[in-house]
Amino acid sequence: MGTINEAVVETVEEQVSPVTVVINEAVGKGFDLIFRLKEDGSLWDQNGIYYNPAQMKIAYKRIFEGNPEDGRSIRATTIYLLRNDEGDKGILVDADGIYEDSRMVRFTNEVEKRYDATRERKLQTKNKLMIAAAGLLLISSVLTFKLISSRK
């Protein structure tokens, strides 16, 4: 077996982009479907299964800005991790950056608007529960005070 001439061997450093890291982590967490938007704005996975956009939720969203120093035009990539109540989880990538795709804009606006409305309802419910708990605490304190006062 021959010897390796170290002067000739080049070291190739593999650079993994942040986009790849996020996608790999997402797949590791069960987001294994690859979603695509069709021309009509409908959402499909790699197996040809249709998903109703009204039933999808954005579990995670990350925007990666382009690097203007690399000589290419500035582009942004957005990764959406989507899920529904049936447990289907997948990845939708918008790599068009500043060249916005109206399908993607409509889809994400619809999902985010629904998410914001749901979050607002949950916040209102949480506030009502906190007010009710404060009221019960106040009533409990008054009753305890009256009970202690009546024993004296």
Results as ranks from 00 to 15, higher is better:
G135N: 13
V12N: 01
S140M: 08
N67F: 07
Q124M: 04
R103S: 03
G71N: 10
K126A: 15
T78I: 14
G48E: 09
I34L: 11
P68M: 12
R36D: 14
T3H: 14
N5H: 07
S150Q: 07
L33H: 06
T20W: 03
I49C: 06
R83Q: 06
K89L: 09
Q124I: 04
F31I: 05
A117D: 10
L82G: 00
A117I: 09
E25L: 01
S141Q: 10
G135D: 12
T125I: 15
V142Y: 14
F64I: 00
E14R: 04
G28W: 03
N127V: 14
I49N: 04
V21N: 08
V16K: 11
K38L: 05
V19W: 12
E25I: 01
K38G: 08
N5S: 08
A95G: 13
W44H: 06
F107N: 00
E100C: 08
K126D: 10
N109M: 11
R151K: 10
Y115D: 08
I139V: 14
V105K: 12
L129K: 06
Y51I: 09
E110D: 09
G90C: 06
L129D: 04
K29V: 10
I79R: 02
S149C: 02
I148Q: 12
A133I: 11
I148Y: 15
I49H: 05
D45C: 09
I79C: 04
N52I: 11
G48V: 10
W44L: 03
